[in-house]
Design a protein around this nucleic acid. Structure first.
Lengths: 231, 231
DNA sequence: CGGACTTATTGTTAAATGAACACCAATTTA
DNA sequence: TAAATTGGTGTTCATTTAACAATAAGTCCG
């Protein structure tokens, strides 16, 4: 085998940290491995990248095969390439995370076959490969991202209350003290990115809250004018 | 060829955006390609990753072979993996940037053979492959990093004046207005990360400035106590 | 040696932002 | 109709940021 050929003995994969929010906790969608290596262990959904497939496309494919969802928020985070990270050969992986509305997740044939399940991020145990490290890196990135860009809304239904939005931030940031309710509302409303709807919350056993919607067009316009999101 | 084998027909490389600072401009170290593809074009230094080599190690190797330097600041930024980014096959690349003291760069045999040269970041023209995009991404990352972690010092000699430090920030951030001198000095000194030396600048045709040194130990101690760098 | 030149050094004020904090309102349910 | 639950709202003080200019220290040249 020529030297140059030896470089082509390796492969690359994508792994996708799929985040969801159930109203109180940040969740991650994991699959239980049905085959060696790490058979029976929970792992991040991922796959080898096809020879004629862009990295981003591969990450989208992994997501769609598992959840049936397309066009959701997806961001590349980092390549993980320790020599021995994969027991069967040299495989580096490119880590992505995506944000989905947890209610949109329906069990697909693929997810059924792989016994996919939501796990609270705070309670994830030992995963296959270096997936704990990947998850930690993606979570760290998400914590930063959610404060500097309005990506949190990707995890909420289109109509939400301010309390729900704050609970989302509390769940993701997981700070020693929860955010202050009055200050949070003041800040988010002062950005003028939320549209107050005519509707109110239904089916709750207490005073119902107003519903809001995120106005993406306004956000993009503000950004063009130099605005930057910050919580 | 079995399907699984087809995944092992690809390779991965690292490319390294090596930044330097000459006192007034932010520079990047480029090499002129001596062979096809893109023969004669300027490109980022990079190489295929050896089969038994970690990604970070490969990036360090590329840097050392070109500059002779070890142990310098190096950070992975992103994987670039468009299908057709490399004309000779499927090669994805992991982009890194590193920060070196420009005076430490001595021409090594490797850099001589490749005609390596510093280019002002603002004047870089069309590079080989997708290297303009990689450079832009790394520059963006550096701009962010330099405001939130004390990595700027990696580009300066161990002893520097406050004006030199500010010029570095101005050069990297390239803001419409330069930073305010009084505010900048107030802010950086208030962090208590700089040690004022007994020495002053020499060989300048005007009032010489005091020399300072970055105190990394203090920084690490402060971080452990919850401090976060911010300019 | 003195004057011109160049860069170094320093502080105040006003405006904006961030942090801390508690009560009344609206609705459901028993 | 009372109790329980969550929704909604303002003020004050401390901190941070932004804007701004005059004097000091050294070199150079005549």
């Amino acid at each position: 085998m020529s030297e140059i050929e030896s470089f082509f003995k390796s492969a690359f994969s994508v792994d996708n940290v799929i985040f969801g929010f159930d109203g109180s906790e940040l969740k991650v969608l994991l699959i239980q491995r049905g085959a060696a290596p790490f058979k029976g262990k929970w792992a991040l959904p991922g796959d080898l990248v096809y020879p004629n497939e862009d990295l981003d496309t591969a990450a989208e494919r992994v997501l769609e095969q598992l959840t049936g969802l397309r066009g959701v928020y997806l961001e590349q985070v980092k390549a993980f390439g320790a020599v021995n990270r994969h027991p069967l050969g040299r495989v580096i992986t490119i880590a992505y995370y995506s944000l989905i509305k947890i209610s949109d997740f329906a069990v697909t044939p693929a997810s059924f076959a792989q016994s996919a399940r939501w796990h609270a991020v705070s309670e994830v145990e030992e995963l296959a490969f270096d997936h704990n490290e990947i998850l930690a890196t993606c979570l760290k990135r998400l914590k930063h991202k959610v404060r500097t860009e309005p990506v949190g809304f990707e995890l909420l239904p289109p109509k939400f209350t301010l309390t729900e939005l704050q609970q989302l931030y509390d769940a993701i940031l997981n700070l020693p003290k929860k955010l202050d309710k009055r200050n949070f509302r003041k800040k988010i409303l002062s950005m003028n990115l939320l549209v107050e709807l005519e509707e109110i919350q239904e089916g709750v056993a207490h005073r119902p809250a107003k519903l809001y919607q995120f106005d993406r067009e306004k956000y993009e316009q503000f950004v063009a004018e130099g605005f930057s999101f910050d919580i």
